[in-house]
Design a protein around this nucleic acid. Structure first.
Lengths: 223, 223
DNA sequence: CCACATAGTGCCACTGAGTGGCATTAGCTT
DNA sequence: AAGCTAATGCCACTCAGTGGCACTATGTGG
């Protein structure tokens, strides 16, 4: 599934083998994002990508489950951190939705700032251009929220017999994150900062209540 | 894009050519759903599917954009009807979200009952089993809600400067529909009825407000 | 009734993603 | 240093999807 744990910040004293693996993985990710961005996703064949990294195609598929997968690694790392955090978190009398927001923001803070934001930005732009990447990204989020749902059910008392409301809360979390990412990526500022993304996440969550009460009027221009 | 209009109920006096095309399309859909269900998605090669329908592979791709696409046709028809309906609908002083719900239910009512529900059920089961179908399905919904968003912006005054809340309302619509589909498909009742699905849609929408206010408690079992 | 234009189709060859199997290498162990 | 095992490379294979061109059938004008 290629969901290798994100390179833990202070893990430089791993066995040589593991360090090498992490390095190969990271090189594949970086090179892939680079090539995909310059030559396009379809314009980059796996053969050439592998040749550039000097790795056999067979090996590529031992690290990533698909061509799309390699480009989604940065986002995957975030959600993996999210799930880890959710596993530990204590419910401090807040709303479920607020707790989810806090967990996401906490996970975000744990991402390595240098490089990560840039990778996510490239990755997101690719998903906006490449249908198959978009599809895989959405499916990954769906899978993650499913996992989160079982995790919630296991750890907490939800007072929600059918589980419908809590499941929708997770859907809202994913939706808010997507909107935040969208706005963040559209910002003119050249160096994309991780903390700016956090701001957009807060904005998106703040807009949720409005989405239930918003009313619509026909356009004022009558003809 | 293979988004052919759903076979309009009273369209039997089309030119011969068109009738033939519609028939081929429908045969492909039905046979595909059948084969995918019995032999599995991956277990069914396009070559064999095409052989069964007596159509060349080249022709298959003139009707559908991918192997996944053919199996998602039933759901696509629903969302196409949804967009059509949204184009006409007058905002009668309700909430945006309520309007979206009504539009979806109206579109649902316009689906041909015989066969359609069954096809959707098969299709949904396949998405639950086959990752690539799941991915394509999610992407289709995403694309549809994007279209709906531009449509809303064109037709209505949204009183939502950033458009964030209205976009989230669309996300909620999609989420609610997915949950409804999920529950509906899980129901024991053998003959899946279109109207049952409508009931689940109403349930899911009813659960939305709760998803904002739901609180979480730690599991009562202390050790 | 007979061309004629043209949409739709079949056929064939080709690219590229992804997989299975087995030999080989490189890191770890004692 | 010898041996064990995980990781890798290599090769051949399947199958989704595309491009190109020839062919057929439908609808149209003489």
């Amino acid at each position: 599934m290629s969901t290798a744990p994100p390179p833990s910040s202070t893990a430089d004293q791993l066995p040589l083998r593991e360090r090498k693996k992490l390095r190969t993985r990271q090189t594949l990710i970086d090179t892939a994002l680079e090539r995909f961005t310059t030559d396009g996703f379809d314009g980059t064949t796996l053969d050439r990508l592998c040749a550039a990294v000097e790795v056999s195609k067979r090996t590529f598929f031992r690290y990533f489950s698909s061509k799309e997968d390699v480009a989604m690694a940065p986002t995957q790392d975030l959600w993996t951190a999210f799930l880890d955090d959710l596993e530990i978190r204590e419910p401090d009398h807040q709303t479920l939705l607020a707790m989810l927001q806090d967990t996401l923001l906490a996970a975000l803070e744990r991402m390595p700032d240098e490089g990560w934001a840039h990778r996510v930005l490239l990755s997101h732009r690719l998903t906006a251009t490449t249908p198959s990447m978009d599809a895989h990204g959405l499916q990954f989020c769906d899978r993650t929220s499913r996992q989160a749902m079982t995790l919630l059910g296991r750890r907490f008392e939800l007072a929600d017999p059918q589980g419908l409301s809590s499941r929708l809360a997770l859907d809202l979390l994913v939706a808010a994150f997507h909107r935040a990412l969208e706005r963040w990526a559209a910002e003119p500022g050249t160096p994309p900062a991780r903390d700016d993304l956090a701001v957009h996440v807060r904005d998106a969550f703040a807009a949720i209540p409005g989405s239930l009460t918003l009313r619509v009027e026909p356009r004022s221009e009558r003809r």
